[in-house]
């Protein structure tokens, strides 16, 4: 089994989001970066699969050198090796083209991504990769087992779940529930220092979109307080004042 796991380097979930340069750039001052939480699940599941039946897990990131701590962490958690495509990942289409170009030459059996990156919330890379590589893609996967070259999966659908099967190769995107993320141990952290991290220059693919500026949601007005003794008034207010029920 050769598995590729796509790792996105994102601001920690506690980040207070602010912008600079006239709201054209995300303010990275004091921001802690982490592996995108869904990618951590994808990575852990990939390791579980290769522990059951031999194989390798390659972590790939499209990013600049500042993403390397997250890539090293992926190695410390257990990835066999890692690749960084040296480019600013501002466009999901571009990111997918870079990963697809790398994957084409490597014959992976399974490519795992996260369901979405928690910064850009695109949820696009898995489907884009699938199409670019001519692989099927299954998103929001909550369970995956591989046996005899066939993946048996469960995924979220609107209002429920679907069980499905697919022969490899395949792209799947990880949703919560897939597994519990692993925390690197001391041995893993030591080993990660000497594991291969290859840096590759991007191909000439063009970007398809550009973020022009950012904005914050309008601030909420004052919260109208209702005395707990008269809690039932809430329903009246929602009906007659907010006109929402």
């Amino acid at each position: 089994m050769k598995i590729l796991v796509c790792i996105s380097n994102v601001p920690d979930t506690t980040t207070k989001v602010t912008f600079t340069d006239n709201n054209t750039k995300f303010n990275t001052v004091g921001v802690q970066y982490i592996i995108n939480p869904y990618d951590e699940l994808a990575l852990t599941r990939a390791l579980e699969i290769t522990e059951k039946q031999t194989g390798t897990v390659t972590a790939i990131n499209v990013g600049l050198a500042d993403a390397e701590p997250s890539i090293r962490k992926a190695l410390a958690i257990g990835a066999t090796d890692a690749v960084r495509i040296n480019a600013d990942p501002t466009d999901a289409y571009f990111v997918a083209e870079q990963v697809a170009a790398y994957a084409k030459a490597e014959n992976f059996d399974l490519i795992l991504t996260g369901r979405e990156s928690i910064d850009y919330n695109g949820g696009q890379v898995a489907g884009l990769l699938g199409e670019m590589l001519n692989f099927p893609s299954v998103n929001v996967v909550t369970a995956i087992e591989i046996e005899n070259g066939i993946a048996t999966m469960e995924r979220d659908i609107d209002g429920g779940k679907e069980k499905l099967t697919c022969k490899l190769p395949l792209v799947a995107s990880a949703q919560k529930e897939l597994t519990e993320p692993r925390i690197p141990n001391m041995r893993g952290i030591m080993a990660a220092r000497t594991k291969p991290l290859k840096v590759v220059e991007p191909n000439g693919a063009e970007k398809t979109s550009a973020t022009i500026s950012f904005d914050m949601p309008p601030a909420k007005g004052l919260c109208k307080m209702i005395a707990p003794e008269n809690a039932e008034q809430l329903i009246d207010l929602l009906h007659n004042e907010a006109k929402i029920i």
């Binding site: 989001v17 928690i118 850009y120 919330n121 973020t211 022009i212 500026s213 950012f214 904005d215």
Partner: peptide
């Protein structure tokens, strides 16, 4: 973007 913490014009 940022799960609703902000908006981006693309």
């Amino acid at each position: 973007v940022f799960s609703g913490k902000a908006f981006a014009d693309v």
